[in-house]
Amino acid sequence: MSVALFTLGGTISVTGGRRLTGADLTAAVPGLSEVGHAVEIQDVEAVSSANLTAAKMLEVVDAASKAVAAGATGVVVTQGTDTLEETAFLVDQVWPHPQPFVLTGAMRNPTLAGPDGPANLLAAVRVACSPAARDLGALVVFKDEIHAARWVRKTHSMSTATFVSPNVGPIGHLVEDRVSVLTRPLRLDGVQGSAEPADLDAIRVALYTVTMDDDGLLLRGLADTHQGLVVAGFGVGHVPAALVPGLEELAARMPVVLTSRTGAGSIGRSTYKSPGSEFDLLQRGLIDGGFLDPYKARVLLRLLLATDDDLATAFGQYV
């Protein structure tokens, strides 16, 4: 049995002016040979996480599916951390296999004291080949914690403890060399249609974060350039009353998803009913983003528009 390792670059593989290959990364991990599964390495095009695209991640998913078909017991992807929460959620929507798909990386590169990459990679490989991690979809493994892709967030710019799941916490831990899954969340239906990289490239979904004294000027003309919009509103889903007419007009022309900019919790549905409240906006045609943060809502909306899946059904799983 083997684990398929795909390397995409990022801090975990940066040392001076040279990029570490998958062979370099695995050679630096004490105890990796004792896991009991061979690691089959595929070095993908090195790219910073800021330059990763949804199309590139779909290519990795396709290659990972082929590896699983060839007998891999699980998959590990190393990448930069800046967009890891988004790539993990994208993978979770399209990964059809019971085998674990684990994403990890590092906050400290190998030239610094206490690099976290080797420990994260070892933990990720252990999770990828663990029977306990099957049927959980995409997972993020960092600092000996296991997080479900649909909840995990990057919450600190530099800390090695940056990845947390604010609404639920980690679903499992690494204890010595054991993988302990403490709770098994119900695996939700992912995107049903086939998302092709070229189709995704043609879909533009904007993300608009509402701010105090917002005049909504940046929303004008958006329907002429984009196919969808995610609104990150105040608190449980509020916007200034001045933005309501523009958002209602946009919702009549394209899908507009309402989320919270707070980083945790769900939007409301009927707690407040004044103009610009969550109740008011949902009545005007905006889509309830539920517990999805704005970044994941944008990933999901883009996938749904590329596959013609039913938006209400897909977003309804997160309410």
Rank of each mutant, 00 (worst) to 15 (best):
Y272I: 15
A251K: 05
Q99G: 03
T160H: 08
W151T: 13
V205H: 09
A38R: 10
L5H: 10
T271P: 08
H226S: 12
M254V: 01
I267E: 10
V164I: 15
F142T: 04
Q93P: 02
S194K: 03
F142P: 07
F291C: 12
L311F: 06
C129N: 02
G114S: 13
A132Y: 09
H147M: 00
H156L: 06
K296I: 05
S2R: 15
G17T: 00
G9L: 11
E34D: 12
L217I: 14
D224F: 13
A132G: 11
R108W: 07
D116W: 07
I203P: 08
P197N: 01
H238M: 06
I267Q: 12
F279H: 12
P245N: 01
T15H: 11
T155Q: 12
S270P: 01
T87A: 09
A312L: 14
R204I: 05
A306D: 14
E145R: 06
A232L: 01
T162F: 06
V39C: 14
S157Q: 11
G71H: 11
M1G: 15
F6L: 13
D24A: 04
D62F: 06
P96A: 04
T78D: 07
K154W: 03
E59T: 13
V257I: 11
S13I: 04
P240H: 13
V68Y: 08
I287L: 06
A297E: 02
T21F: 12
I41T: 03
G193H: 07
A50K: 00
A123G: 10
V152D: 05
P240M: 07
G16S: 12
L20E: 01
G228V: 03
T162G: 05
F315S: 10
A198P: 05
R150P: 05
Q227F: 08
T83M: 01
M158A: 15
Q192A: 15
V168C: 08
F234C: 02
F101D: 02
P131N: 11
F315T: 14
E34M: 02
R178K: 15
L182H: 13
A223H: 15
T104D: 02
E59V: 11
R19A: 14
D92E: 06
F89W: 07
G263Q: 10
D224Q: 14
F234E: 04
R284C: 06
F101S: 05
D308N: 15
L174Y: 00
T162K: 03
G169V: 02
T7S: 08
V127A: 10
A306N: 14
A50D: 04
D177A: 15
E145T: 09
C129E: 04
E59D: 15
F291H: 10
E34W: 08
T21R: 09
G263R: 07
M212E: 10
F234N: 08
V244R: 04
N167P: 04
L250S: 12
A206S: 12
G22A: 02
L286N: 07
A198S: 10
R220P: 00
D280C: 02
V91P: 03
D215I: 00
T183I: 12
T155A: 14
V175F: 06
T78P: 00
L301T: 05
A106W: 03
R18F: 01
R187D: 13
V94H: 03
A106D: 07
P118H: 02
V60E: 08
D309C: 06
G316T: 11
T211A: 07
L20W: 08
Y295C: 09
A113K: 09
R126L: 10
A88R: 09
D24H: 02
F6A: 12
V230C: 03
A27M: 00
S49G: 09
A55Q: 12
